[in-house]
């Protein structure tokens, strides 16, 4: 067993652990931080698979932007900070665990049977090629996605903007 594989398995283990923490912790901030760890470990996995550019995008976009957004969201919605037993919906816990467990077993069954013996050969960096493909063959979807992002930006601002009428009502 090579050192590379050991590192990979270890990463996967940590990934699972932090992901489980995201959904099980009773602390909102801890959940967010765990998501940061999950994403960072995913980026590590991507690096191990020699997809450096995607790993960087993941770090930049997710950890840099999305998580910050989440933290803002948590704070603005005044979700109870610190340990809070009320975070989970206890009635759903059993059913949720059952369903997600079943899905996990299904997926595992299919994936393990379907990809028996398949291996990954990691090559060197491919960032330059990726950039060329992205801006030549996939330039049209790329532009469309940027439009979607713009639309989401405007939509987010429109939705989250403080309504003047509501503000007045609050003041009264």
């Amino acid at each position: 067993m090579e050192i590379y594989e050991v590192v990979t398995y270890f990463t996967l283990l940590l990934l699972l652990f932090s992901a489980a923490r995201v959904v099980t912790t009773s602390n909102v901030i801890h959940a967010a931080i765990s998501l940061v760890f999950t994403l960072a470990l995913t980026a590590t996995l991507f690096l191990l698979l020699s997809t450096q550019f995607v790993a960087l995008v993941l770090v930049l976009v997710y950890i840099g932007a999305v998580i910050v957004l989440f933290l803002f969201g948590v704070m603005i919605t005044r979700a109870p900070l610190g340990k809070n037993a009320e975070l989970d919906n206890d009635k759903n816990k059993l059913i949720g665990a059952t369903i997600s467990g079943a899905i996990f077993l299904l997926f595992s069954y299919i994936l393990i049977n379907g990809f028996d013996g398949e291996i990954v050969i990691t090559s060197g960096s491919s960032t330059e090629l990726l950039g060329e493909i992205l801006l030549s063959r996939f330039v049209f979807p790329f532009e469309i996605v940027s439009f979607v992002l713009l639309a989401a930006l405007i939509g987010g601002i429109t939705l989250a903007r403080k309504d003047e009428a509501l503000v007045d009502e609050d003041q009264i």
Binding site: A19, D88, I95, T122
Partner: peptide, 30 residues
């Protein structure tokens, strides 16, 4: 390196996400 451990980990992440959606009360957590 064989792919199955990675795929299973991804499936586990997916299932955990489902679990979180079903169980969490807070919309941000969902």
């Amino acid at each position: 390196m064989i792919v199955q451990p990675v795929l299973v980990t991804a499936a586990a992440l997916f299932s955990l996400g489902i679990y979180g959606i079903l169980v969490r009360r807070n919309a941000v957590m969902v």
